[in-house]
Design a protein around this nucleic acid. Structure first.
Lengths: 267, 267
DNA sequence: GCTATCAGTTGATCTGTATCAAGTGAACCC
DNA sequence: GGGTTCACTTGATACAGATCAACTGATAGC
């Protein structure tokens, strides 16, 4: 069984731009960078149309700006832990996050990866049900749940957008439950790679030589296998010409249809 | 691999109270019973505080009443199928529902069971991501998504309540993904039984001799095992005194702590 | 340059659960 | 009352993927 490596909490006070407006889980790890500017509606990120606040009325954006907070983390930093009081949602500006649950004996299940434009940390008056950890150097936009809730009284579009994100996440979970409950190792790995590829395509990035932000262990803990099986399966795919591995962290998909067939047993 | 039995579509025109206000997926199967009365805020069900509309302002309840629809189904009836256009959410008034996804070769994964007071079918301008089927004779309250959305413009509490339900569902999915990805057969079955028991307790029903609305095949397709393994595991639990089976469809839990220990490998 | 570390890969073996097959008992029907 | 059906159980065997172990190559530190 897979055991999680302990996450070392590291203090980073080297940044010249740190200002702390309030206390929140993980704040000792975060660097608040007020100098961030970009093409996001509120000017605090460069997410453009991927930004949570994109398309909102001017005054809604202004309200969000006031409570928003841009945080930076290094790979392996923990944003919050399972059981922490859930006070904020996060939008990934750059980098990748994994969220996972641990069992008493150390077995770990990663329940989601989040990339640029993704939102995570939904939690209404309760504790976070999982731990969130940076996979790569990370920049996130943090929105306090309480403020978001207050705001949505007057701006229903805010709540509606959250609803949209959650609906999409629910649909994703249905797929992932199918993967974990009924798919073979080959199907799992194929499905995972395809999902990454399709996500890239939807975002306008090249769909084929896709970068793998996460290591083999993380992939294994996500698709419910061991590292060894993930590794063997990817080697097998390479041997069969289903994928190419220019480097361990880059996967090329020469024939999407073939990989898709491998992802649901129709091949 | 588990194969789903074909669901026989049955027409039931024997009811004297059928009135069809509009067309919707599965309407040929449903009986609309306008005569239902109860203690629910809108008078159309007896869910009491479990009702979706419980606690809403008078005029909100009135709006919901007008678009609400109470439907009845028999066991094995299909409410909607994966790929159908998602036009409504459902609240279970009585009985049980399972939702599942199928693979091309017939493998099936049940992604959720829904009981009295539960809400399912969330789907914002898209298709249902799964099929919903009655496990027992069923009564549901149907709410058109579009109307719900319109209503939430003026009544934010509606959207907020949906958000609450979805957040709870998301948390449940995290648990289920952990179960499917990392738990052993014993742990899966123990977790499943405990969840049913705790649900009953939360609802004020007796937590111990819990009725199993679903058959062994459905349990297997939910926890990602085969019928045989579920059956063997339950027999083993009985032999070890972890549970008792007064009938195949009733489970007594003499020692919750012991079963809990079995549910995460701490025993 | 030498060593340590760490991610990934590959090989040999073991095992938990699936698969295949048959048996039991309750409910239903003619 | 005898047969059919269907859900569940039990037994024997097979196998996919886990486990244990070793190897490779890249990166970092001194």
């Amino acid at each position: 069984m897979t055991r999680s490596s302990a996450t070392a909490a590291r203090l980073d006070s080297a940044s010249g731009l740190v200002t702390t407006r309030e206390r929140w889980p993980g704040d000792t790890l975060a660097r608040v960078d007020q100098a961030d500017r970009g093409n996001g509606p509120c000017g605090h990120c460069d997410l453009g149309t991927l930004a949570f606040c994109d398309g909102f009325a001017r005054r809604t954006v202004t309200s969000l700006m006031r409570v928003q907070c841009t945080l930076r983390f290094e790979a392996h930093d923990t944003l919050f832990r399972e059981g922490d009081t859930g006070v904020a949602v996060f939008n990934v500006v750059s980098g990748a996050v994994k969220v996972y649950k641990l069992m008493p004996d150390g077995r770990r299940q990663i329940t989601g990866f989040f990339f640029r434009g993704d939102m995570f940390g939904f939690c209404l008056d309760g504790d976070y049900a999982y731990t969130a950890e940076a996979v790569t150097p990370l920049s996130v936009c943090r929105l306090p749940m309480q403020r978001l809730h207050e705001l949505s009284e007057t701006a229903p579009e805010v709540q509606h957008r959250i609803l949209l994100r959650m609906t999409a996440k629910l649909a994703q979970f249905h797929d992932h439950v199918l993967l974990l409950g009924r798919k073979t190792a080959r199907e799992r790995v194929a499905t995972f790679l395809l999902a990454l590829s399709e996500r890239a395509r939807r975002r306008g990035d090249p769909a084929s030589p896709i970068p793998l932000a996460m290591g083999r262990v993380d992939i294994a803990d996500y698709v419910g296998l061991t590292v060894e099986t993930v590794s063997r399966t990817m080697t097998a795919f390479k041997r069969e010409g289903l994928i190419d591995l220019p480097s361990p962290n880059h996967v090329a998909i020469p024939d999407t249809q073939a990989l898709r067939a491998a992802s649901d047993g129709s091949a």
